[in-house]
Amino acid sequence: MPIYLYLDRETFLHRLNPSVKVFALFVMFWSVYWVDQPLALVPLGVLLVAAAEFTDSWPNFWRLRWLFALVILFTTLAWMVFYRRGPAVANLGIIHLSHASLLFGFGRGLKLAELLATSVLFLSVTKVEELTEGLTKLGVPYRAGFAIMLAFRLAPLFIDSAVTVAQAQRLRGYQFDRGGPLERIRRYVPVMIPVFMGALRKANNMAVALETRGFGRNARPTSLAEYPTRWPDVAACVVLAGLAAGYFLIYYAGYGAIAAN
């Protein structure tokens, strides 16, 4: 099973400078923030669909299809409980079903789904080292960036370990799905202790191996990776800035809000 979402393709979006990708992520979040009206969110949705097609990221979206559906459904329902505005169409207990609450809840559900889609796209075209490079450019210290990269590298190893341990305990007749919630959560003890102890055994060896490779010898290590800024990066930034400004104008002009009554 693929663990991370990154898809190794040679597209324009894959080749963008990591800082531009982080900027794109920010612009999408910014644009979504200013509007609640579902119609106003449609252009962003179209843009995301086009990007997904262009980068052939559909396998990742398919993998997360249920998450998208549930996010929209439950966010809509949650807001219909708290956004009690507009005349109620039907009496559904704690849910206030009105045109306004439905529109508002759906809008926020759509917002969340678009944000999720943005992040899936970002992860489909960005490698872990590009992310840490982007973070370092944003001022995150080298050692913190390294810890993030190392954690990303270790997580799949520990997942494999956790799955193996769970298999080993099952073969000793152990059942994880017995009892109520408290009992069920407690039944993870025989899995988590071996995984934990295995990780700790590694910790000391890793620290020693790091020191022997000169970790900490220089406060400002250099980098093998190069991420030059090319004209497509500049062009992408201009388009993204336009998108951000456009969505702020939609908000400013009052087209992004939902009439409550």
């Binding site: 050692r143 390294f146 270790l154």
Partner: peptide, 16 residues
């Protein structure tokens, strides 16, 4: 350095 490694290990364990 050990704390940096333990930080990564705590994170990876949590995610794992």
């Amino acid at each position: 350095t050990r704390m940096v490694v333990l930080c990564a290990i705590s994170g990876a364990l949590y995610a794992a």
